[in-house]
Write a protein that binds this DNA or RNA. Structure first.
Length: 845
RNA sequence: GCGGGCGUGAUGGAAUGGUAGACAUAAGAGACUUAAAAUCUCUGGGCCUUGUGCCGUGCGGGUUCGAGUCCCGCCGCCCGCACCA
């Protein structure tokens, strides 16, 4: 009897696949293609269990689809630009490029032993000039099509480090390195006009039927279409040029409940008032809040009474105070609102704080309008309009229409559809990103680089010993002739958001070495991505930007019309979690730093260990398990089997040593079974061949259905079940051999190395990786009899076994003859008898 | 704060509105063994009055012959919030 040794077997089959070029994807118009893609990783240098789970899922799909006869494309690349490389440069003095390429080499070396069916010949990194040069070409094309523009936008500014900070680099309003209070600063930045596509991106969501409903909802809410009214108030006491204040509201029906107006601290009027030191101080305070919407919304609502008043559009004598408020965003609507505290919680909180009036103007149907008042909760539901003169007694909808009509007919405003989606700011004041291929010329202005000069490569000789962007101070790189007039000019030193890099890599994979961004024949054949797999944390930004970019690429001729929705199906997988451990001092401990004792753990030094909840694996909590260690110890198949087995793919999975060990034991059990069967004399007869083969066909059917529907854990449960059946079977050698070979095929997407070894051990020809998927015989799936539970008043009390084809009347007769039913009925007739054929019987008494 | 999701035994989870707990882990008992490991077999939601019993899918209501599943209201946890990737 031989034992299964993953350490020997796995590299052997990986070499066999490589030699057979089993996963090389070649365009072949005669075959139907299938494109599987997992979200490509950031090259941090170490793979983690989240990667293992993600790529294993993709690999199951890729190997399954390949067995089903599809021409599969399953590539891998690196999302290689970004801040960590610059941080490493600052901390360790290494060049971001060297650091990144070393990490890529390390991670690739950790991934290869997983046995993924990846076409490595298509590997790319977004920091390859070969890649980002094509991205620059598309940027220029997009400029030509009017999809790119510049405008002022606010950034987090660290006044000590003299640098722009990312939101994650701002901690409690201070820069993470300097500790200085962060300011909001306005810079001229590059934008993509994603807002041109707001409506298109919204309506097209309805066509994404194979995306999770939650992701589609999140995108719809993010785009945030609203119908509203944009109109002008006349102002009293405002500086010159501000005799009107334009506001946007989605609730024009509440206009008679208005008790204040509020503007953003970045609103032109607020800026114009900064000659008043109190206003300047308040605005400065607002600007120290950070730029995230979250910070804005969570912060205590504060306002500053400007002393300016606006006149109610329907009552010349009604003056409303204008506040500068810290919760109004300049980027949404007009950066100014009117507040109706009775029907908006934020406005209500604000009004209570500053002692402003709260007049209810919408009364719920079941309330008496004379008694209805607002306490601590705003009323945002439907109802009848009250306290609103000509609007009284209208519905909310009618009142909105009426106010819109009156405002429009007076020419002081217009009903308008608004979107929450803002244009995509792509400028980053950093070195390690794709340079924006533009030159600033004193004569010609902003000029795109000539395409033949692409790529605009990042200079290698840079240093990070000083704050700021090294591109800004790199004289020879920066000073170049103007592409148009040839005069002295300067390169743009902003680089692109890394989301740009990841917005088209899936298209580049179809022709990764081409000298144009894409090649028509290749994108036509391979696009779209048939199955995209990644974390739900990308539900909005990455996926929405990619949808936009695909449309832009279509406009610039780089992508066919059919690919403007690039991902046919999307699956979002859960995270990998692990228990957390702390010593008595509260220090986090890794799973290697503890050992089990009765009912718990202790440190290797014998200290007691507090076990915390299972949370996402993270370096800071030290609850990480290194995939490399697991693969060394158990082999890749064990790791793959375990990350698929215990939890539904969309949900979080808890990594446990016991679970990994169980997966390993099972792989060995299957191998032993295979070995036992291989040693049987093929002429050996037995009993129960039919039962075994029926179980086999049912397993083929169940596993197939479960893989198709991403029920990998359920597929594995069925394979466990079939292993038990086969272990106990007394069937003939021929039937058992057929069963074990079929099982190898069914396991191949999850445990490809074991499957190959069983396949070879049973004397099958070629590779499982290139064998067709087994087919379930429909005739073998039908049971002749069925066990029917009998419920009495909805509770299961007994069961009967009947022929599957038995008519309903016959079933009813049998049920009424049933002993348990007779006892309960005691001679009476049931009130109701429900027979669901093949399912259940319910007797209502 | 806003948007989205999730919640079932000791544990991970299964279950087209139709037998709740498949499959697996931990635990217990047994077989084999000088012993241990490994392997195999059995038990495996809770309660009591042990019955044709009662309770049980985060909590409270509702719809239905029948609800883990559908609806309403809570609670808890997780993800995203536009410069992390």
């Amino acid at each position: 009897m031989s034992r299964y040794n993953a350490r020997v077997v796995e590299p052997k089959w990986q070499a066999a696949w490589e030699q057979a070029e089993a996963f090389k994807a070649e365009r072949d118009e005669a075959r139907e293609k299938y494109y599987v893609l997992e979200m490509f990783p950031y090259p941090s240098g170490r793979i983690h269990m989240g990667h293992v789970r993600n790529y294993t899922m993709g690999d199951v799909v890729a190997r399954y689809k390949s067995a089903k006869g599809f021409n599969v494309l399953h590539p891998m690349g690196w999302d290689a630009f970004g801040m960590p490389a610059e941080n490493a440069a600052m901390d360790k003095g290494v060049h971001p490029g060297d650091w990144t390429y070393q990490n890529i080499a390390d991670m690739r070396a950790q991934m290869k032993p997983m046995g993924l069916s990846i076409d490595w010949s298509r590997e790319l990194a977004t920091c390859d000039p070969e890649y980002y040069g094509q991205q620059q070409a598309m940027f220029i094309d997009m400029m030509d099509k009017g999809l790119v523009y510049r405008k002022e936008a606010v950034v987090n500014w660290d006044p000590v480090d003299m640098t722009v900070l990312a939101n994650e680099q701002v901690e409690n309003g201070r820069g993470w390195r300097s500790g200085a209070l962060v300011e909001r600063k306005e810079l001229t930045q590059w934008f993509f006009k994603i807002s041109d596509y707001s409506e298109e991106l919204l309506t097209a969501i309805d066509g994404l039927t194979d995306w999770p409903e939650k992701v589609r909802l999140m995108q719809k809410n993010w785009i945030g279409k609203s119908r509203g009214l944009q109109f002008n108030f006349e102002t009293i006491g405002a500086p010159d040029g501000h005799d009107q204040l334009e506001v946007y509201t989605t609730r024009p029906d509440t206009l008679f409940g208005a008790s204040f107006a509020a503007i953003s601290c970045d609103h032109p009027l607020a800026k114009a008032l900064e000659t008043n030191p109190d206003v300047a101080a308040f605005n400065t305070e607002c600007r120290q809040m950070g730029t995230t919407e979250e910070a804005l919304e969570k912060a205590e609502k504060k306002g500053f009474d400007t002393g300016i008043r606006v006149v109610h559009p329907f009552d010349k004598g009604w003056e409303i105070p204008v506040y500068i408020a810290n919760f109004i965003l300049m980027g949404y609507g007009t950066g100014a609102i009117f507040g109706c505290p009775a029907h908006d919680q934020r406005d209500l909180d604000f009004a209570r704080k500053y002692g402003l009036g709260v007049t209810p103007v919408v009364c719920p149907e079941d309330q008496d309008p004379d008694q209805f008042s607002i306490g601590h909760e705003a009323y945002i539901g439907p109802g009848r309009i009250i306290n609103s003169r000509f609007l009284d007694n209208m519905t909310v909808g009618d009142a909105i229409a009426e106010v819109n009509d009156r405002i429009e007919s007076r020419g002081i405003g217009v009903a308008k559809t608004n979107y929450r989606l803002r244009d995509w700011g792509v400028s980053r004041q950093r070195y390690w990103g794709c340079p924006i291929p533009v030159v600033h010329c004193a004569e010609c202005g902003v000029v795109a680089e000539k395409k033949e000069n692409l790529p605009v490569e990042l200079p290698k000789d840079v240093a990070f010993d000083r704050p700021g962007n090294p591109l800004d101070r790199h004289e020879t790189w920066r000073n170049v002739p103007c592409p148009r007039c040839g005069g002295a000019a300067q390169r743009e030193t902003d680089t692109m958001d890394t989301f740009v890099d990841s917005s088209w890599y899936f298209a580049r994979f179809t022709a990764p070495r081409a000298e144009t961004p894409t090649v028509a024949a290749d994108v036509d054949y391979w696009m779209n991505v048939d199955q995209y797999i990644g974390g739900v944390e990308h539900a909005i930004l990455h996926l929405l930007y990619s949808r936009f970019f695909a449309r832009a690429m279509n406009l610039t001729g780089n992508l066919p019309k059919k690919a403007i929705e690039p991902f046919n199906a999307l699956f979002t997988q859960g995270m990998v979690c692990h228990e957390t451990y702390q010593n008595p001092e509260g220090k986090w401990l890794t799973p290697e730093e503890i050992r089990p004792v009765d009912g718990g753990y202790e440190t290797l030094e014998g200290q007691s260990v507090t076990v915390g909840p299972s949370i996402k694996m993270s370096k800071s909590k030290k609850n990480v398990v290194d995939p490399e260690d697991i693969i060394d110890q158990y082999g890749a198949d064990t790791a793959r089997w375990f990350v698929l087995s215990d939890s539904p793919p969309e949900r979080d999975i808890e990594w446990t040593a016991a679970g990994a060990n169980a997966a390993w034991k099972h792989i060995n059990r299957v191998w032993m079974l295979c070995d036992k069967i291989a040693e049987m004399d093929l002429a050996t007869t037995g009993t129960g061949d039919d039962e075994l083969l029926q179980a086999m066909h049912k397993t083929i059917h169940d596993v197939t259905v479960n893989i198709e529907s991403f029920g990998f854990n359920a597929a594995i449960a069925k394979l466990y079940g079939f292993t038990n059946t086969l272990t106990k079977s007394k069937a003939s050698a021929a039937a058992q051999k057929q069963a074990i070979v079929t099982m190898a095929q069914l396991m191949a997407p999850m445990t490809p190395h074991l499957a190959e070894d069983i396949w070879a051990h049973q004397g099958s020809q070629g590779l499982v990786a290139q064998a067709p998927w087994p087919k379930a015989d429909p005739a073998m799936l039908i049971d002749n009899t069925v066990t029917l539970p009998i419920q009495i008043n909805g509770k299961r009390r007994d069961e009967i076994v009947v022929a599957k084809t038995l008519p309903k009347e016959e079933v009813e007769k049998l049920v009424l003859e049933n002993e348990t039913v007779q006892k309960v009925l005691a001679g009476a007739t049931p009130k109701k008898l429900i027979v669901v054929p093949g399912r259940i019987v319910n007797v209502v008494v």
